[in-house]
Amino acid sequence: MLLITCPATRADELVADRRIRSVTNHATHIALHVECPSCGRVHVYRTGRMVAAAAAHAREARVPVPA
């Protein structure tokens, strides 16, 4: 089971493994193509250290630094 957030409806959905359509191994991450039960479309979710590091860096860049 996977817990995903649908980008179309912004709803959190618990998804069965059978809804995974494909898995692609890249050099920096793994891409899961998952059929969304909320909207019926296939969304791509990326996992891995490089993706997590980039997301953390983006969050840090948005936080204002107190003067």
Rank of each mutant, 00 (worst) to 15 (best):
A55H: 02
T5Q: 10
V63Q: 11
P7T: 06
G48F: 05
R41I: 00
R62Q: 14
H33K: 08
H26A: 08
L2D: 13
G48E: 03
R49F: 01
A8K: 12
T24Y: 13
L3Q: 15
R18F: 08
L2G: 06
V51T: 09
A58H: 04
P37D: 09
P37L: 07
R49T: 02
I4N: 05
A61T: 04
H26I: 00
A58V: 02
A56S: 04
R49A: 05
T24A: 10
A53G: 07
H57K: 15
H33L: 04
V42D: 05
P64M: 08
V34S: 02
V51Q: 06
G40T: 05
R59C: 02
R21D: 11
R19S: 12
A8C: 03
A31Q: 08
V42T: 14
H29I: 01
D17R: 08
H26G: 03
G40Y: 01
L14F: 03
E13N: 09
N25H: 14
A54V: 00
R10W: 08
M1F: 07
T9P: 11
Y45C: 06
P64H: 10
T47D: 05
N25S: 13
T24G: 01
S22H: 10
V34A: 01
V15P: 02
C6M: 12
G40I: 09
I4D: 09
V44R: 13
A27Q: 14
C39Y: 06
R10V: 04
C39V: 05
N25R: 12
R62W: 03
T5G: 04
L32A: 11
M1P: 11
R18P: 00
C6G: 10
N25Q: 14
L2T: 11
V23Y: 00
S38V: 03
R19F: 08
M1V: 10
A8Y: 08
T9D: 14
R49N: 09
D12M: 13
H33G: 02
A52I: 04
C39S: 09
I30V: 15
Y45K: 03
V65S: 06
R41A: 15
G40M: 10
E35D: 09
A53T: 08
R18Y: 10
P64Y: 13
